[in-house]
Simulated scan of single mutants.
Amino acid sequence: MTVTADALTGAGWYKSSYSDGHGGNCVESARVNADWFKSSYSNDTPGGDCVEGARLADGAMALRDSKDPHSPAFVFGGGAWAAFVDALNGGQL
């Protein structure tokens, strides 16, 4: 999956703690400033808060665990997200 640079506009990039100064700079992560919303399937019962989403540029979607909002998020490109939603709405999943 590829996410265009526009979908990550305003992201704060940082190196992984596993990268080093000897050619081991292999992974960077982005902190995305986004308006997160709780999934309509989450509820206020214990353990019910499970998923938050954020709409990004180009139709991309970020998802994270609402119980740990500082944890990493999964980012899906616009085409992949649209195909997933279409499959759900079509009863294919």
Rank of each mutant, 00 (worst) to 15 (best):
A60T: 09
Y18N: 11
A11D: 12
V27R: 02
G12F: 09
H70I: 13
R64Y: 02
G24D: 14
G10N: 03
A62N: 03
H22R: 12
C26I: 14
A60M: 03
G53W: 02
M61L: 14
W36P: 02
R64A: 10
S16E: 07
N43I: 12
W36M: 00
Y18M: 13
R31H: 02
H22P: 00
V32W: 00
A5F: 07
G24Q: 13
N33T: 14
L63Q: 05
K15Y: 11
K38C: 12
S16M: 07
T45F: 11
S66F: 00
S42E: 06
K15M: 14
P46H: 10
P69R: 09
S17F: 04
E28C: 08
T45C: 05
L56C: 06
P46L: 09
S40A: 15
D68N: 12
D68C: 05
S66C: 04
A60L: 12
G23S: 06
C26N: 13
V27Q: 07
A5K: 11
G10Q: 02
A7Y: 00
S29W: 06
A30S: 00
Y18R: 10
L63Y: 15
A30D: 08
R55N: 04
C50V: 15
G47Y: 07
N33C: 08
A34P: 05
K67C: 11
D35L: 12
S19W: 00
L8H: 02
W13P: 01
D49C: 10
S40G: 15
A30Y: 02
S29L: 12
S71V: 07
G23D: 10
S71E: 15
W36V: 03
L8D: 03
H22G: 08
V32M: 01
D68A: 10
L63K: 06
G24S: 13
R31K: 12
S39A: 09
D35W: 03
Y41K: 12
C26Q: 14
N43D: 15
S39C: 08
Y14P: 03
D44W: 09
T9E: 13
S42Q: 02
S71W: 06
D20S: 09
K15P: 07
S16G: 05
P46T: 08
W13K: 05
D44K: 06
S29T: 13
N25Q: 14
A54M: 02
D35E: 12
K67F: 07
D58A: 09
A60K: 09
A62D: 00
A54G: 04
